[in-house]
Amino acid sequence: MRFLIVDDDESIHLYLQSILAPFAQCDNAMSGAEGVDFFVRAHSERRPYDVVFMDILMPEMDGHKAAELLRKEEIKLGIREVDQFHLVMITSLVDNRNVSKAFFNSFASCYIVKPFDKDKVLDELRTNMIL
Rank of each mutant, 00 (worst) to 15 (best):
V6C: 10
M89P: 01
E68I: 00
L69C: 07
I56G: 03
E34Q: 10
E45Y: 10
V36Y: 04
A21E: 11
F38S: 15
I112R: 07
A21D: 04
N105V: 02
Y49F: 15
A66L: 08
D50H: 13
H64N: 09
K72Q: 12
T127Y: 06
A33D: 05
V52Y: 09
I5E: 14
E10T: 10
K101E: 01
S31D: 04
P59W: 02
K114D: 11
M30S: 14
P48E: 06
L69Y: 08
S106P: 00
F103R: 04
R71W: 05
L4Y: 02
D50K: 06
L16N: 05
A29C: 11
E34V: 09
N98P: 08
I19R: 03
A42G: 09
M129F: 15
M89E: 05
A21R: 13
R41E: 11
A102Y: 03
H86R: 14
M61D: 06
E81D: 08
Q84K: 08
L125H: 01
C110R: 03
V40Q: 07
I75F: 02
Y111Q: 07
V52A: 05
Y15H: 04
L14R: 12
F23D: 15
R47K: 15
R126L: 10
V99G: 14
H64C: 07
L4T: 15
D50F: 07
V94K: 12
L93V: 15
I5A: 14
D50P: 01
E81H: 02
R47F: 14
A21H: 12
K114Q: 11
R97V: 12
L4F: 06
F104Y: 13
I130Q: 03
L125N: 03
Q17P: 13
T91N: 01
G32T: 02
F3V: 04
M61L: 14
E10N: 08
K72F: 04
N98A: 02
Q25L: 10
M54F: 12
R80Y: 15
F53M: 12
I75L: 01
L122Q: 02
M54E: 11
A29Q: 12
L93S: 04
K120F: 00
V121R: 03
F107R: 10
S44N: 10
S18V: 00
Y111V: 15
M58V: 11
S100I: 13
F103A: 08
M1I: 10
Y15A: 03
L20K: 05
Q84S: 08
V52E: 02
R46H: 15
Y15I: 04
N98S: 08
F53Y: 09
G35M: 09
H86L: 03
T91D: 03
Y111F: 14
E10I: 13
M58H: 09
A29R: 11
L77D: 06
A33S: 09
V99N: 13
I12C: 04
D95N: 07
M129Q: 09
L93E: 11
K72I: 00
L16H: 06
D123P: 00
K65P: 00
